[in-house]
Design a protein around this nucleic acid. Structure first.
Lengths: 152, 152
DNA sequence: GCAAGTTAGTTGCATACGCAACCAAGTCAA
DNA sequence: TTGACTTGGTTGCGTATGCAACTAACTTGC
């Protein structure tokens, strides 16, 4: 039975991960927020559409592990801004096929580049081999990282 | 000039970090949220007070890198729940010295233990050596991870 | 063909957050 | 002392989020 006095937030993995995530997200946030007024979620949805082409909101949920509510609102906002268009699926009239508009693709082109550059710079500073290992670790954490249960 | 089509969210470090952070935080969240109705921020503030003893809100900001607003509200909530007490500092009447109450210490004891166990289990599954390396990496990212500027 | 589920997506509500503006107490210098 | 500046902490306001409840469109078994 561990002594609670031994507990140190600074060595607590969830905390460290959070800080690291905040640090990186925050600084990249400037790109999509300042330049295009996008939310983190909106940027992610856009990035998925940019990468994978047309798909339905549900697909985005599956791929990106973002909850449906968040996706739904992000999609609404992106549509509002003219960055994506919705078409009711002919196969399933509940579903909507989402696709970036030209404007959306332009934004993705710009942000995609910046993201690549940002990522490269960060990895370079960490050391590319190390960064690659980090990827694996993070994926493992994401995959099995939820020992207690309670999935998102 | 990178081709935006090369961009893949799944290999974007800020994104991976976020997912990993979410995955771990989420599952530990059950402990403090379900059991004590605490917010992530509240739990962190409590953890810092539990670890370091009495200190001022400003100190918590410095140590934990949480913004003052968040700390302020968390402190108010924790006081409301009877987990901490405030005393105006005799040295500087603007500052308030925060200290856990007995109830607060009890909560910390419980959550501290659970946190240690959670962390251990996670590290064990990653491999302890690897987990230690991960710590370093994350600290580096946190420290220098914000190349563009725009600090928190 | 239809009642009992499912599933895609939206919405209401209550809460947490970020930012900027704001008080009150302290500091510093003239 | 007094006026300009800094600093500890709070608050108002607009926005993002999570959860549960909801609609509409599909599926299944009978």
């Amino acid at each position: 039975m561990p002594d609670p006095a031994d507990f140190d937030l600074e060595r607590f993995l969830p905390y460290l991960l959070n800080q690291a995530a905040e640090a990186t997200s925050r600084s990249f946030q400037a790109s999509y927020k300042a330049a295009y007024g996008l939310t983190r979620t909106q940027w992610r949805v856009l990035a998925n559409l940019g990468k994978f082409g047309s798909m339905t909101a549900r697909d985005i949920c599956r791929i990106s592990h973002i909850e449906k509510t968040k996706v739904s609102r992000a999609v609404a906002a992106l549509e509002e801004q003219g960055l994506l268009s919705r078409t009711t699926s002919p196969l399933d009239r509940r579903a909507e096929i989402l696709a970036l508009t030209d404007a959306g693709r332009a934004v993705f082109a710009d942000l995609g580049q910046r993201a690549i550059e940002y990522d490269r710079a960060l990895r370079a500073r960490l050391g590319t081999q190390i960064a690659a290992d980090l990827d694996d670790l993070l994926r493992r954490i994401i995959a099995e990282g939820t020992p207690v249960g309670d999935e998102d």
